[in-house]
Design a protein around this nucleic acid. Structure first.
Lengths: 148, 148
DNA sequence: CGCCTTTATTTGTATATACAACTAATAAAG
DNA sequence: CTTTATTAGTTGTATATACAAATAAAGGCG
């Protein structure tokens, strides 16, 4: 046993991506279930939240913060624009297409907060406090990683 | 300040789902990059790994282990079957459609192990040892959660 | 000013994901 | 043994995601 050969068993038991993806599915489903009455999914919710925080957001800003591919965001924003939750903001740089929450978008976010709280509590209960505590640091590192 | 009103700032800073999704994107990209030379994505890789572990796997088994929707798995298995990595196994219960790795599937998994190891090391480095240590427990809980 | 590079976004294409509805087959009830 | 309920998968539809390529507008340089 000089070299501990990595085998299928080992990967099945230790793969970080596999575990993360599994947890991500379960947790995203918790939030999606809670937000369904509002016609909102957590994927879009997080974009709305960050947009609200920024006031006026450019796609490139959101993509950096959330580590989203630009093409992914583009389509997601388009859907939320059609839903009346986001609106474009005029700008001098014609390459950029910044946007902000509409009034309807703000009302949506406000009204969904109790559902978010419920999902958040359920997720915390499921994953355990210690894990959740470490999420912040890990997410910060991931958010700042520059692998492009 | 009787009731600490949850506001947009709070959600932006604390949403478990948002953080998990972000980490999941970054980490999945690490593995997908590493596995790209093999025409394999980590989403499929994990299904192959679990199939290999089980020997013969039924869709419902994989879905339970990985907390995947049956329709998701169905399409994913179909792709890997077309790629020659999975093959159907005859069964007496005509409702079930179990499958196993083909020889090519086994070879693929074996050949991709060094790339997986590289990605695994990179992910560990990025997320931190303490976080990775807690992943096991959290994933186990998520895997056993029964929210259907 | 005109060319070249960089930056910001969109479009084409493919996989991942889930929900709802459907099909088919076994199991359970009577 | 027939009817009903349960179980296993697939298909329709919609969003999420990323990569590659295309578009378009600034910015920099000679």
């Amino acid at each position: 046993m000089d070299k501990p050969a990595t085998n299928i068993e080992t990967i099945a038991k230790t793969c970080i991506a596999g575990r993360l993806r599994l947890i991500n599915r379960v947790v995203s489903n918790i939030y999606d279930d809670a937000l369904r009455p509002f016609g909102l999914k957590i994927s879009q919710g997080n974009i709305l939240i960050f947009t609200g925080k920024l006031g006026v957001a450019s796609p490139v800003q959101i993509c950096e913060h959330l580590q989203l591919d630009a093409s992914t965001l583009s389509r997601n924003v388009e859907l939320m624009r059609k839903n009346g939750w986001l609106e474009e903001v005029p700008t001098d740089d014609a390459r950029s297409r910044p946007f902000r929450l509409t009034e309807a978008g703000k009302r949506l976010v406000e009204s969904a907060i109790p559902a978010w709280e419920k999902a958040q509590a359920e997720a915390k209960e499921l994953l355990g406090d210690d894990f959740v505590s470490l999420l912040n640091k890990a997410a910060k590192r991931a958010s700042e990683s520059n692998r492009a």
